[in-house]
Design a protein around this nucleic acid. Structure first.
Lengths: 326, 326
DNA sequence: CTGTTAGCGCCTTCAG
DNA sequence: CTGAAGGCGCTAACAG
């Protein structure tokens, strides 16, 4: 900056002002300065500027559990687009469902003085996500409500989406319905199981633990587990699958079989309508989910005064979509 | 930091050293310092530290053209994973195929003093991507070779992948083969068209411009264009589709029709094997693509001395996969 | 092993 | 409208 000042024959102070579009710089000097900047290829230093102003870094951190799941990529896309509308950029990181890594990422983000973070928590342990311990950095949780901390959250309508989709299986005459779920300790895992149980109960069907599985982290595992479900005595005639990985795995396991098995699953996905099996999905807009999370966060960032305002919850609606046999 | 120093009854310098795990701090003082840090909830300031050391920010920037295309999300996943192995984080941004936005993003990244950037260029104008104009910040291009600048690049084997896939259509007796391409000015668009032409030529088939289309940015457009291709006199009996968006759009347009149309397309995608049509795809590993790009970049970052070393090119191999009729 | 001094590049403040 | 002085939080380089 000194070099630019010398080149333009003004003081560094004037350069600083010109570059920030401060009103009150003589047009001719401004022109000289801009020319000098171009000539020297000068580029400001955000670190120095942020250090002095203590100003925002213009960065939002995002921590998700599994980027390989298209749901999380789409979430990231939604966050990125809303953040861009607020002039912010997104730092993306993957916790891989590892609580220690999540903690480390959050701490790193706080040290970088990010303006805020959006986290899909891996576990129910949220103490490290309390803004009070993060220099007041706003936090928004996605897909899981806060536990013993007070922050905004965006959630899906897990319970009633699952409930309705399971009902639609029952309405088609199924009574032996398998459940390919998520770990019971997670919010989505538990809410979706609750929805499944509620639908069975209201029709007087008992939940049979022989039909319930909860440990299928990827498509291959879901395939294997589906096969084992169907190979037992009196196998289920239908399945509820708790996310898109399970739906696709179940579909792959079923398609080679003689006896038809109906599927209802959480998450819509591209080409779901073309699978050539009757398929019910609990659909919602994952990008909108991300946009809502970013909107909550940007609001907190832009209105820091109201930091003590009650935490908000946004519920993303779901709808049940029936795909025909193609 | 002063507060911590006072609390621990040492000088700020010692705190600084302790926090950076400098060897040569008495264990008892170190313990006192860590305790004080915990008590006060102190957190270092990256901006100040970076300002002083001029050191790396530990951040890699990524600019892609269209995050909504799963190819780019997977690319980002690969970059994120390799960057994480090198202790770096990723800032993700979307240019939306807008050159002005790409320029702005790159400039912003340079001002933030990122350690390096990976860019999927929107156009053939690359002057703004020259490290010489970016304070020496390393740049790696993805999916497009550098034009009039000297930087590393990771490319797909666009030409021969397309050539082979088109040949496989010809081998099955097709001679009227449509081409759903990408804009001719892009590298991938041009290379894939070249591969298509080469395959036709070697079999003595003339390229018929009536069968060639290049402006289908999304699935809906690809569907509409496919319908118009097939509704002309003497419609093509097969199609080569230049990316996954076009393949899926073409598939959707074709499946309701009476006369069968074969498809070969660039990009593999989930569920491609289940579409119930014979489908040939040019497959490769998009995450590996991202990992290779990040590896090139991290190498440049970690070995800055050799900045003048000749630019490298990594070609990601493709293979042709034939999916049966399901 | 520890503290002192000085300054990274910028911006707030105040005096011309 | 412009410039001089000083300091944001941290850490090299040196001196004890």
């Amino acid at each position: 900056m000194r070099d630019v000042a010398r080149q333009a024959d003004v003081s560094p102070m004037t350069v600083s002002r010109a570059l920030r579009n401060d009103p009150g710089v003589a047009p001719d000097k401004r022109a000289r300065i801009l020319q000098a900047v171009a000539l020297l290829g000068y580029r400001g230093n955000h670190h120095a500027s942020n250090l002095r102003t203590g100003a925002s870094s213009g960065l939002v951190g995002v921590v998700v559990t599994n980027l390989a799941n298209p749901f999380y990529s789409q979430l990231a896309i939604g966050i990125e687009s809303m953040a861009a509308e607020h002039g912010m950029r997104v730092i993306l990181a993957n916790s891989g469902e590892d609580l220690a890594k999540e903690r480390q990422l959050v701490n790193d983000f706080a040290a970088r003085k990010l303006d805020g973070i959006i986290v899909v928590p891996t576990a129910n342990e949220h103490a490290h996500l309390d803004p009070a311990g993060l220099a007041g950095m706003p936090v928004v949780l996605a897909a899981s409500p806060p536990v013993r901390i007070s922050v905004d959250a965006v959630l899906l309508d897990d319970f009633s989406g699952t409930w309705q989709a399971t009902r639609s299986l029952i309405a088609r005459g199924h009574r032996d319905i398998g459940f390919l779920g998520l770990p019971a300790s997670t919010w989505t895992g538990s809410e979706r199981f609750r929805g499944y149980c509620a639908a069975l109960e209201e029709s007087g069907i008992e939940v049979d633990e022989r039909y319930v599985r909860r440990r299928q982290p990827d498509v291959a595992a879901a395939m294997a587990v589906t096969a084992s479900l169907l190979d037992q005595d009196r196998p289920p005639t239908a399945l509820f699958t708790a996310n898109n990985r399970n739906t696709i795995g179940a579909y792959r396991a079923i398609r080679g079989r003689r006896e038809p098995v109906a599927i209802a699953g959480f998450d819509d996905f591209e080409l779901a309508d073309l699978l050539g099996l009757p398929l019910t999905v609990v659909a919602y807009d994952p990008e909108e989910f991300g946009r809502q999370a970013a909107a909550l966060l940007c609001d907190r960032i832009e209105n820091p005064g109201e930091g003590t305002r009650a935490p908000r919850r946004v519920i993303i609606p779901t709808r049940v979509v029936e795909y025909g046999a193609g």
